[in-house]
Design a protein around this nucleic acid. Structure first.
Lengths: 187, 187
DNA sequence: GCGGCAACTGAAACTGTTTTCAGGATAGGC
DNA sequence: GCCTATCCTGAAAACAGTTTCAGTTGCCGC
């Protein structure tokens, strides 16, 4: 039951963050959503910061998983496009993850501890993109610097993600933009 | 004196948001920074939300101004690069504006009123970029769709801005990336 | 069945922040 | 000089949220 409760609390945290952001994150909401008492949050995670930290670790862990397990398309360029476009989608889980990630990034501007976690996670993702680009460049030739291109593409996806979450672009528009940028870089 | 005080309060708001984010935004901090009593904030702006709203309007207004008044370089492509790169810089004011904008964008995910303001402001900026691209395309020729390129470049700048504020890239790296992307798109 | 331990509860205490409000200062019109 | 309106103050009250803690439950080994 212990792990069950922990897991339920962390899931409730994600839902709460997706619904209201970190600013609107209330321990009471989390407890209610998870169907446990507020005291249990403290029992398992110490204080609000500990809970938030655990929840955010949970989110980034699952995001890292998703990034890894989406590789079975044919060419490197196709896999690259699929990986980057998987950040957008109608699936509520994708949106929730994206919102959590967005909040986390905003938080990181003021909290060095968060900044380190964000940086580590971003670097891992960018490295995956880097490798795919290097592979694609080998296929097609070209004078592109894979590291520079990886920075551009991942930053672009983050920017588009902000636009998408605020309703400024649709999923399709974001994905088209990503593909166009990949093409623009000569891949 | 009235407008003086109002203006000082709004400036203090920006500094406070830049220092601590919207979650760390304390009316008392604002009052101290502006050198006025906390009661005066209520007198002029009603409540916390009213103050925050006014401060954010103030930020977007000035951001729009800055975007408009930076046009005197030679070619359209040069002006485009200058405009986009002006989002990054060591000047504390640029950083503060960027942080405030970053916070505002994160807030907009949950507050439709903010989302509308952000969308309007972003659209204006993107339109400026669009026009510069159209001009540059005329100069050089090419099959680029200026609207699509404007979306890509502005979203890229927003993504890089997040990386910069969290210390993941330097001002120079961000600017180099922007220039490289412009070049990649064939401008 | 008893002792002890881990999971769990929720109301009360506490902390930090915002809002209110009675009133003080200043300037301008009469 | 007096009256009034506007700007402004800051302490007190109200509020929102987190943390604590004394106590309950149920399980497991003995």
């Amino acid at each position: 039951m212990t792990n069950d409760a922990r897991e339920r609390i962390l899931t409730a945290c994600e839902q709460t963050i997706a619904r209201a952001g970190i600013r609107g994150f209330r321990m009471q909401d989390v407890a209610s959503t998870a169907g446990v008492s507020i005291g249990l949050l403290a029992y398992h995670f110490g204080d609000r910061d500990g809970l938030l930290q655990a929840a955010l670790d949970h989110v980034t862990e699952r995001a890292a998983d998703r990034a890894t397990h989406s590789a079975d398309a044919t060419t490197a360029a196709t896999r690259l496009a699929a990986l980057l476009c998987s950040e957008f989608g109608r699936d509520p889980e994708i949106r929730a993850g994206s919102i959590a990630w967005n909040e986390l990034r905003a938080l990181a501007v003021f909290e060095p501890a968060q900044a380190a976690a964000v940086a580590r996670s971003t670097a891992a993702w960018q490295r995956t993109v880097h490798e795919l680009i290097a592979e694609a460049v080998q296929d097609r030739g070209g004078d592109l610097d894979p590291a520079a291109a990886a920075l551009i593409l991942t930053a672009l996806v983050e920017g588009l993600s902000g636009r998408w979450l605020t309703g400024q672009v649709t999923v399709e528009e974001a994905q088209v933009s990503v593909r166009e940028a990949i093409r623009g870089l000569g891949l």
